[in-house]
């Protein structure tokens, strides 16, 4: 696993244990909904936490291909490496 993905894994672990009160282990193979028991609110808290930490935006379309913790770590790492174009208003000084 690439260094960036490990960094994302650490942050996912922090969010689910500290903010979502998850007591068990957090592994890349775990299903976010089935294994970590994240509901819609939990998934939103996780997405917002990652967006804030890595200064990225995750969309509904992104969520389509994400099922496991590892899928999410990979997506975030890719987004950090190749950020989407800034919105016009953010390009202004």
């Amino acid at each position: 696993m690439a260094e960036r993905e490990l960094e994302v894994m650490t942050e996912i672990h922090r969010i689910v244990t500290e903010e979502l009160e998850w007591k068990g282990a957090v592994e890349p193979s775990q299903d976010l909904v089935r294994d970590l028991q994240l509901d819609s609110l939990g998934l939103t808290v996780l997405a917002v936490g990652l967006e804030n930490r890595f200064r990225i935006r995750l969309s509904e379309e992104d969520a389509q291909g994400v099922r496991t913790v590892g899928d999410l770590a990979k997506l975030v790492a890719q987004r950090v490496a190749a950020p989407v174009e800034p919105r016009p208003e953010e390009a202004l000084p």
Binding site: T44, V48, E51, N52, R55, R57, L58
Partner: peptide, 8 residues
């Protein structure tokens, strides 16, 4: 605190 305000 938050980065993606559109989500909020």
């Amino acid at each position: 605190r938050h980065f993606n305000l559109e989500r909020l």
